[in-house]
Amino acid sequence: MPTVSVIIPTYNRADVLSRAIDSALDQTLSDVEVIVIDDASGDETDAVVESYDDPRVTYLAHETNRGGSAARNTGIEVATGEYIALLDSDDEWAPTKLERQVETIERRGDEWVAAYCGTTLIDDGEASRTWERLKSFVGRHGTTEGKEGGEKLIRDILMEDLHTSAGSTLVVESDVVERIDGFDESFDRYQDTEFLIRVLKRGKLAYVDEPLLRRYPSGGPSADAVRQANTHYLRTFAEDVVELETRGYDITGTHHYTLASLYLQEGRFDRGLAYLRSGLTPDLRQLPGLCYNVYVGLQTQYTA
């Protein structure tokens, strides 16, 4: 039994997939298996994976595209490790990532069942820089990390006050993943966040304060796609949302503010202003971000 099963779902990323696989195989914790799930790619993904002459690498392929959640579940079904580690196919890990996270979990008490780590954002093009700059403003509290604990973190996640990049940072005990039945395949967005919230209902999350993930952003979804996913996400955790809002945490307003920013950035000002009126009142730190979104929206309208 390997210590860690690394789950890498992928779709049409043959050009960058080796970066992720290599970083998983080059870990100082060498007792790993790497499971790549090809979600019916139309490129040379199969050739990339099959070029690895390493018994630690397993290649699985879907006949039809089923989405990231289903791909991860396919990998989880065959995983044999004590821990499950998630890695997006366009990211890469520092060599000590798994070793540091596993030792962090194991030196804590039994209630600590998972760990995440710090992230370094790698700019790989103007579109990515623009999207990441936008996200640093649209969140009510910014992209924070470093918090750890149990169910109380659910509030911070729903309030967008904790961003863990769980899809590439998270390491979880395998028996916990089994008890929560893996990923919810009804989610095509927020899938990693939804998964993490259910993990937190089973145990505590530790944080390794080192930038052990190199993340390569590839742009963001449309405002409409975020709105649809956001509705499903908040309905799924409706009990938590109601309980927190009863205590004075405006979960709905937080998410409406984010949607407002995205619609403004697309130049859809009527929708943006409507969500802005129903969202949380922006503080002074966020005003430059709102102005930036309006500027980008005007540019979008001008070039349309």
Rank of each mutant, 00 (worst) to 15 (best):
G149N: 06
A24E: 02
E99A: 09
V208Y: 02
D26V: 11
I35Y: 03
W93I: 01
P95S: 15
L200A: 09
T10Q: 14
K147R: 13
E111M: 04
D88K: 01
T169I: 05
L276F: 08
G146T: 02
V6P: 03
L153M: 05
S69Q: 03
L98S: 04
Q191D: 12
Y302V: 05
R227Y: 13
Q27M: 12
E33T: 06
L273E: 15
P282K: 08
L244M: 08
E194C: 12
Q301V: 00
R13W: 06
I8H: 09
I154Y: 02
L196K: 03
T28N: 08
R72C: 13
T119A: 04
S168A: 12
T281N: 14
G109E: 10
G149L: 02
T300S: 07
A127K: 04
S168E: 06
S30N: 10
L298N: 01
A206R: 03
E145N: 12
S89Q: 00
E245A: 06
E210K: 13
L162E: 09
Q299N: 09
G289H: 02
T104R: 09
T64D: 15
R179F: 00
T193S: 07
G289T: 00
T45Y: 08
V199S: 15
P55G: 14
S222T: 15
A238W: 10
E148Q: 13
L205N: 05
E132D: 02
D46L: 10
I105A: 01
R268F: 00
G67P: 06
E173A: 04
W131T: 15
A229T: 10
A225M: 12
E243M: 13
D22G: 05
A70C: 03
A85H: 11
D90I: 00
S69A: 15
Y292N: 12
D31R: 01
F187Y: 14
L213W: 06
D46I: 11
S30A: 08
S41D: 08
D88G: 00
T231F: 06
G248S: 05
T252Q: 13
A85N: 07
K201M: 14
V294T: 08
S51H: 05
A223L: 10
P95W: 02
S128Y: 01
T130F: 01
I8Y: 02
R133V: 03
A114Q: 06
T164G: 09
E243R: 15
A223I: 05
L170Y: 07
I251E: 12
D161E: 15
N73Q: 10
D184M: 10
A71L: 12
Y292V: 06
G118E: 02
Y190C: 08
Y257H: 14
V16Q: 06
A115Q: 05
L213C: 12
S30D: 05
R268G: 01
T130V: 08
T143M: 14
I122Q: 08
S278W: 06
Q191I: 12
T119Y: 04
E160Q: 13
S222M: 02
D38A: 10
V176G: 07
S136V: 04
S69F: 01
T96S: 07
G167D: 10
T258M: 15
